[in-house]
Design a protein around this nucleic acid. Structure first.
Length: 804
DNA sequence: CTTCGTAAATTTTTT
DNA sequence: ATTTACGAAG
């Protein structure tokens, strides 16, 4: 029995790869996960590679878990066959369990499989104390991981307290985003300062510097640091780099098209020991194996860059042409979808210019046509989806709810769908949105744990110092914080200093002393208690549980259930990881995503964003909200490369479907509040072959859209001409007639696509879209040097540029 | 120090 | 429309 059995030629070539670089270009549904798991199993059992020498990067934690599970099954089957000469499933239960335990102990436990963030935070738990920072900052191995919210709060603090700036003008969210981008490029504050122009850019660099300092003071890292610090550490420390380079002889990266520069750098450092990949020659018993599909790259907003995949062969490879290369394999046979669905996907993606030429070849029958439904608004759309699915279930009794997914562009779209599904009694689960570990009560309890491990974590301390209430108020906290800042020591050092606390006197001192006692005694338990016991103690002894009980509202009931769930999660963590402790549990909690949590076993429809659907497949897929400005998003409409990314997202959505695909769009949609906005059918609908579609004629939509595009272009040209004409002293033309289509009869001013406007703060811009009409119009304007802004012309300080 | 009320912002996609 | 954030009163 071999792991090469039952594979096609290309898959076999990939799985059998032993040494050197290999790029596996794997189209949707071509069995790439199979190739990855089979290759790991093959390396271990056929090439006798030590599992500890393997590092495999997956895109989600869930994918990592599934890969480990599949590996265990594959290996169990082989061992059962080789040693007992019978199929694994016919072994008696006890034997099966024994075998699985053995495989876990000897193999899967030794493998490093996980996301970039999980793997490299693990590496930092070994070596971060040896990291030498250019600005003299340092961290210990007990570091906390801050989520996006924590990071933004820290930045808000810096903006308002340290720099005394208006957080409305300098939104913490935007600044965090700018800093995140810098980190993903590998830039330090100095570099950002040099690279950025203008006052604002320099200020952001300043915030960046203070933010790093603040993180270090808390002994904390943000998500980006989990990748950037390892890069810097591996660059600067030859010994540590050498150790990990020798350790990980076989690197595997899934979803390679969605890696960013920092992640690439990690891969390069580990595989070539910091050499230029083209100069690295010692590939004996060493490999770099990346799997991806440039057509499914959908994360450029977080600095993913699919040119890294496109350049792989130039970079690591033999630079030979596709036909004879040994460093690229293409998996083009699709085993997932019907021919109809594939043809639609191929046709759509052929509109993109930046890609590796690749066509998915169908291996399955034609299947049924793609169904398109036009609805009046988002409520009618939700009803239409529900009816469609009800009907489908009635006519196919063997179809389960879990076989169906509804995909949308933005999380906010789930609401109307949920309303409708509840009304019709259809079970569903929403993926995304609020993470389990982001719930307030969970974050509170985790903050206790973080503080126990990392006393420097002032963010966590401040979160819980008066939660539940202990009579420690704002003024007390301010005084303690001031003292800590003066002495440049962590807040906890002041709080735990009895002398210092006693000088405060009165009610707050009592509360503080009580709190200190609690933390100190919990700390003592840290060493000999299992995580779930410690969590239980925190919940009870902190008074958190009592407060929830005395509250006795429906909400507090829910919170209690969630805390019970947290204890269960800790127990599960202990069971699944021999070396599981509080630190590893906290790391798991910080890096888990909502999609990782959801159990797929229950029989319910899944609702999620198109982004979350990556890597999944369903017999029945519904995509809703196929409208211009929603999908593709309005932010992408005037930028061809982001429009191409939206198209890839649509390609991902379509290729999730195995049997049937249903598309929906509404001709009107309430976006926020009550404003109804007319919506045009998505450009992508007009890019699907007409003969594959049934239902509401897309042609009316597609054709109207094409006409609309032409109209916009005409308007733009006319506008220019009319300006020129005016300049030449001639009378203006029918451009106004055309423009009326877009602009309402608002008194005085009218706004139309293509118009130039002057904004008091942003300067000159051009209107790229209008939404709504009349008094309620809002406009999208592209200003120089920034993304499009959505403005309400009644409020925003803008003037038509023609009027000066 | 806490609670209650009003104001303001919110909607891209996420490890 | 719904949620979060801040400020005034208790």
């Amino acid at each position: 029995m071999s792991f090469l059995d039952g594979l096609n030629d290309a898959q076999r070539q990939a799985v059998d790869h032993l040494s050197g670089p290999l790029l596996v270009v794997a189209g949707a549904g071509s069995g790439k996960t199979r190739a990855l798991t089979h290759r790991i199993a093959h390396l271990i059992s056929h090439h006798c590679v030590d599992p500890a020498n393997i590092l495999a990067v997956t895109f989600t934690n869930k994918a990592a878990r599934e890969m480990k599970e599949r590996l265990e099954i594959l290996l169990a089957r082989k061992i059962a066959f080789d040693q007992f000469a019978q199929p694994y499933s016919t072994l008696e239960m006890g034997k099966q369990r024994e075998l699985r335990t053995r495989i876990y102990r000897e193999i899967t436990k030794e493998l490093w499989i996980g996301t970039f963030h999980a793997l490299f935070s693990r590496l930092l738990r070994f070596d971060i104390d040896k990291f030498v920072d250019t600005e003299g900052l340092s961290w210990t191995r007990q570091f906390s991981i801050y989520d996006e919210k924590d990071a933004q709060n820290l930045i808000k603090e810096i903006v308002t307290q340290d720099l005394q700036l208006d957080p409305k003008r300098f939104e913490p969210k935007k600044i965090r985003w700018a800093i995140s981008n810098a980190k993903n490029q590998g830039w330090m504050p100095e570099k950002l300062e040099v690279e950025s122009e203008g006052h604002r850019g320099k200020l952001i660099a300043k915030v960046y510097r203070l933010y790093r300092k603040s993180l270090a003071a808390n002994n904390a890292l943000d998500f980006d640091d989990l990748l950037l610090i390892p890069v810097q550490l591996l660059q600067q420390n030859e010994q540590i780099r050498g150790y990990w380079h020798n350790r990980f002889k076989h690197l595997l990266v899934d979803e390679y098209q969605d890696t960013n520069r920092t992640q690439y750098e990690l891969i390069r450092l580990l595989s070539t020991n910091n050499l230029q990949p083209s100069l690295f020659k010692s590939w004996d018993n060493r490999s770099i194996f990346v799997v991806g599909d440039a057509d499914q790259s959908i994360y450029s907003f977080r600095a993913a860059d699919f040119t890294i995949l496109m350049d792989f062969q130039n970079d690591f490879g033999d630079k030979k042409s596709d036909k004879i290369t040994k460093t690229m394999v293409k998996l083009e046979e699709n085993y997932r979808s019907t021919a109809t669905i594939l043809e639609a996907a191929n046709s759509l993606i052929s509109n993109n210019t930046e890609r590796i030429d690749k066509v998915l070849k169908a291996t399955r029958g034609e299947g049924s046509l793609i169904h398109l439904t036009r609805c009046d608004d988002e409520i009618a759309e939700a009803e239409a989806v529900t009816h469609r699915l009800k009907n489908l279930q009635r006519t196919n009794p063997e179809l389960n709810w879990r076989d169906i997914t509804i995909l949308y562009r933005t999380n906010a779209q789930s609401r109307s769908l949920e309303d409708s599904l509840v009304r019709w009694g259809i079970p569903y689960v929403v993926v995304g949105g609020l993470r389990f570990y982001d719930r307030r009560e969970i974050k509170d309890i985790l903050a206790y744990l973080k503080l126990l491990i990392n006393p420097a974590d002032t963010v966590s301390l401040l979160r819980i110092i008066n939660t539940p209430r202990r009579g420690i108020g704002k003024t007390t906290i301010q005084r303690l914080t001031d003292a800590a800042n003066q002495l440049s020591i962590p807040l906890w050092d002041i709080v735990s200093d009895h002398e210092a606390v006693r000088t405060l006197g009165g009610r707050s001192a009592k509360g503080l002393l009580q709190f200190c006692e609690l933390i100190t005694s919990l700390k003592e338990q840290l060493k000999n208690s299992k995580p779930h016991v410690l969590i239980q103690d925190v919940i009870e002894r902190s008074g958190y549980l009592n407060e929830l009980i005395s509250d006795a509202t429906e909400e507090s009931e829910e919170r209690r259930r969630n805390l019970q769930e947290l204890i269960n999660a800790a127990i599960q963590h202990e069971e699944e990881n021999d070396d599981g402790n509080i630190e590893t549990f906290l790391a798991t909690a910080a890096l888990a995503s909502d999609a990782d949590e959801k159990d797929t076993s229950s029989n319910r429809i899944t609702l999620m964003t198109l982004h979350s659907s990556k890597g999944l497949e369903f017999p029945v897929v519904c995509i809703v909200g196929m409208e211009q400005g929603l999908f593709p998003s309005y932010r992408s409409l005037d930028d061809s490369s982001s429009l191409e990314e939206e198209r890839r997202l649509c390609y991902v959505g379509i290729t999730r479907a195995k049997e049937q695909l249903f598309l929906f769009h509404a001709s009107e949609r309430r976006l926020w509040g009550g404003i109804r906005e007319p919506a045009l059918p998505s450009l992508f609908l007009s890019e699907l072959p007409e003969n594959l579609l049934k239902g509401d004629r897309p042609l009316s939509g597609g054709a109207a859209l094409r006409k609309e595009n032409r109209l916009e272009r005409l308007t733009r040209i006319d506008r220019k001409e009319s300006l020129e004409a005016l300049a030449g002293g001639e009378q203006s033309l029918p451009a106004n007639g055309l423009r009326k289509v877009h602009a309402g009869p608002s008194p005085g001013k009218s706004w139309a696509v293509g118009d130039q406007v002057i904004h008091a703060n942003f300067g000159l811009g051009e209107i790229t879209h209008t939404f709504g009409s009349g008094q309620k119009i809002s406009i999208a304007v592209k200003f120089e040097g920034m993304g499009p802004k959505i403005l309400d012309p009644r409020l925003a300080p803008i003037q038509p540029a023609g009027n000066i």
